[in-house]
Design a protein around this nucleic acid. Sequence first.
DNA 1: TTCCGAAGGTTTTTT
DNA 2: ACCTTCGGAA
Length: 749
Amino acid sequence: MAEDYLKGLNSPQREAVCHIEGPLLVLAGAGSGKTKVITHRIAHIVAIRAARADQILGVTFTNKAAGEMKDRVIKILGLAGRHVRLSTFHSFCASVLRQHAEAVGYKRDFTIYDEADSLALIKRVIRELKTPEGQPSPGTAQNKISHAKDKLFDPGKFADTAADFIEENIARIYKEYQAQLNRNNAFDFDDLLFSMVTMLENNPQLKEYYQNKFPFILVDEYQDTNFAQYMLVKYLSGPRKNVCVVGDDDQSIYGWRGADINNILNFEHDFPGCKVIALEQNYRSTATVLEAAHKVVSKNLKRKSKKLFTVRQGGENISLMLCGDDRDEAAAVTAKIKFGLSQDKTPADFVVLYRTNAQSRSLEDALRDAGIPYVIVGGTRFYDRKEIKDVIAYLRLLINPDDTDSLLRIINIPKRGLGDVSIEKLLKIAARHGISAFEMMNKPEEADLKGKPALELKKLYGILNGLSTEIPKIRPDEIAVRLIEQIGYLKMLDLENTPEADVRADNVRELVSGIIAYMERIDEESEGEEKPTLAGFLENVALITDIDTWNDKEKSVTLMTVHAAKGLEFDTVFVTGLEDGLFPLIRESTDQKDMEEERRLCYVAITRAKNKLCLSMAGFRRRYNNSYNTEPSQFLFDIPENLLDIERFNFYSEFFYGPTLPPPKSYDLDFRRKTGDRRLSDKEPNAPEQFGQTVDDLLKVGLTVSHHKFGVGKIIAREGKGEDMILTIRFGGGTKKVIVRYAALEVLG
DNA sequence: TTCCGAAGGTTTTTT
DNA sequence: ACCTTCGGAA
């Protein structure tokens, strides 16, 4: 019975599971049973009594992955599996820091700022420091500071390495930002790792404590770790080095967030004597899909050479859908899904992937019009909505009154007649007295505030102070309900009397349901051992993402970015927007290293498919305000032609492709950078002939064409030209006049 | 001093 | 198309 879990493993998998002592690197290709190895290895360690369940730490990047692993471990080990510590890097650090907050100069009830919170603070710091106009932009500063923290550079060290004037300014911003975060008793995402690592560094006994607490460590998606995470793994694994890292260098797609692919490439060097096991049998995809994926990724120079294999020979050909514009593309995807649904597939079998969130719009419209149920993962999170952030800011203040930036967010929402001038006074005097802005609110006279502003400040202080004393006595959801009532948030929305405000009000009510759902989940998971708290809810909100709450039992088509899809699999996968400049996404700063990452991203996208892969591109794409003619993605040319079925779709636009893929162009990154060419194409818009033929050339009288509604017919007359051309077509059911612009015509010959 | 409407810059991917 | 910022009115 104890060895049951070893059955159903192939031999490298079993070898990995049974390796107990010493460092282990598992190079797990896409769909090779990576999660299985991790979960079974945990079970094995416990089963042979090498360690207790609570002595094993498994870290992942998403809560979803952590949760799934936990479920699977529990399935093998039974309830003992509950004590395995499986969490994300960030939430693991957050929970350790809560216990030792004072060791890093924080209080236990610290707030975790998300990216938007952090950006707001950086903007304020820039305003206060009066750095020269637009030097640097808040976004650049945030990015640089984040990367500095990834590399464990504190403000001092960053200042030392500042190469130019702008970086010197960023160093000043970084220093002040950090001081303000500390004063707010708040961490940003990067701080969670940074502070954790520096804490272990500065407290050898604490480091030893955690080394002994977790003699076995497993790291998932190791290719996505940054330097701080690498150091954390190193410290935690200690002299024992019972560390098992699992990853795939071909799936390293978070370089832009500081992930260092060298962590996995150099693991053998960093942990001498480590065992290396490669999992190369793929259990997910057809040979066709794997072949295409391999052809795309193997062009990269910086990778460990390997090739996945499968026993599933052949497989359905890959559809390459050449579409006129983005609407056509969305319609083509929808049509394919419709067809699949009419066969034996269900909505949950499909995923539509794209490089950028902005692309979801047209896809969404088409699916909605077709009445196909869909869910969008990512984009604007529920908790990113303005009204939700407002209420969250209030709740944070109840827990952590030092959080001045949350206070600033809501101090005049709803309108209390507190403008910039009053707020400025409050902040200034509070700083002079060395107390928080929140405390200062209770004595506005000392801040030279009188009349309505003074009254309002006192009133708000009273509400928040009153509620915070109730926190230990009242359920978290009830606190939120009372808060919303007392500040009059719903009343404010009601007065707006617009449909948007109604939606916002619903969202606020939904937030309360969210708190209740959280409470139920904690009760369930800990079986009543852990008490759900408001503070716990807020931490959860900060660290949860959309993908964490997505589940595949959903009876809907899923729309998401390629990044979000990592680790998932679907029967049918659409990879959309395969156009030069969009996927691969090319910007001014794009270099060879980034191109390799784009290639890996494409590899990740393709390998999500179990049975059917559909690739698509549009010849004409609307982006931001502009529209562009596009070139096909270079990745398309890496896929052997015999694996592709090329189809053309023109439901709306005037673009027509020839029967084959338009020929590749030269992709000279250096040239683009030198010339500052950031356009998706070097052609003028509205030049459809670049794609073979113009409408006028193509749609000659006598041609046989296919219409999505009327079927196959013959052109018997035409009037006008271009996209406005009106064709008279004799179909089986009779003669119709159609406008080219609106008709879904495919030329059959 | 605050509030409201118009202009302007802005988006790659995310824990 | 969206949110922040700026300028003028109450």
